[in-house]
């Protein structure tokens, strides 16, 4: 597992209060991990903070699974 994936999963566990083993690449924040629309906004903010990157709203809308977040951040984070 990449360093980015580790960090993403740690944030998801902390913010959504879910077990680490549920946070798989395919896990959908809303359908699988119990997030609501506000949780997903906060998650994106937490990714921005952790990776020191700006995630525009149109990009944020495409991040619906843990894997989407990892892919986006691997590509865009410095």
């Amino acid at each position: 597992m990449s360093d980015v994936a580790d960090r993403v999963k740690k944030i998801v566990v902390e913010h959504l209060g879910v077990e680490a083993d549920k946070v798989t690449d395919n896990a959908n924040f809303i359908d699988d991990l119990g997030a609501d629309s506000l949780d997903t906004v906060e998650l994106v903010m937490a990714f921005e903070e952790e990776f020191n990157v700006e995630i525009p709203d149109d990009a944020a809308e495409t991040i619906v699974t843990v894997g989407d977040a990892i892919k986006f951040l691997e590509k865009n984070a410095a």
Binding site: L38, V41, E42, M45, E48, E49, E54
Partner: peptide, 10 residues
């Protein structure tokens, strides 16, 4: 403003 949490108001 981008660092103000969505949970701030509720």
């Amino acid at each position: 403003p981008r660092r103000v949490s969505p949970f701030f108001i509720p």
